[in-house]
Design a protein around this nucleic acid. Structure first.
Length: 146
DNA sequence: CTTCTGACA
DNA sequence: TGTCAGTA
């Protein structure tokens, strides 16, 4: 029951997260740099990862190792998430939004000047969190299409 | 001892 | 992806 709460709690330092996932801390930082993940940051600038973050990264690892999808490929997939539907932004916002037309870059790694997303923290945004598990993207799109 | 950023014999 | 540097 409080498993749901802990799921989102940033409690693992990067070294611990790396050991759990089986990658180097360097790799985790690279994933962040590439915009694949948005780790929680303390005031001290230290990264912290939640259980959900770790599951997300494990999903990324499977995409890379099993499905042979490159990091750019993953970014491209992320960029296809219909964020405008999820946040239900205005038509004006869409005209001012880079991610509405962009290719290859997930919306959360772009600036959204003049839109409702400008103030939002992407780490807690539905678009970023809706699908931390593999295969959820298609289900998400289906639910929106209805 | 761990993490951070930036860099590359 | 590894690793070394120089800090915090």
């Amino acid at each position: 029951m409080f498993d749901q709460i802990d799921r989102q709690e940033p409690i693992f330092p990067i070294g611990t997260a790396a050991r759990i996932i089986g990658v180097s801390v360097h790799t985790l930082r690279m994933y962040e740099r590439e915009g694949l993940i948005i780790p929680f940051k303390k005031e001290s600038n230290q990264r912290l990862f939640s259980k959900a973050d770790i599951e997300r990264i494990e999903c990324i690892r499977r995409a890379i190792n099993d499905s042979k999808i490159s990091i750019n490929g993953i970014k491209s997939i992320y960029s296809l998430i219909p964020c405008w539907e999820i946040v239900n932004c205005s038509e004006e916002d869409r005209q001012n939004c880079k991610s509405y037309k962009s290719h290859g870059e997930p919306c959360w790694s772009l600036n959204h000047p003049g839109t409702i997303c400008a103030k939002k923290e992407c780490r807690s945004c539905e678009v970023y969190n809706k699908y931390t598990q593999c295969g959820e993207i298609k289900e998400l799109i289906k639910s929106i299409s209805r």
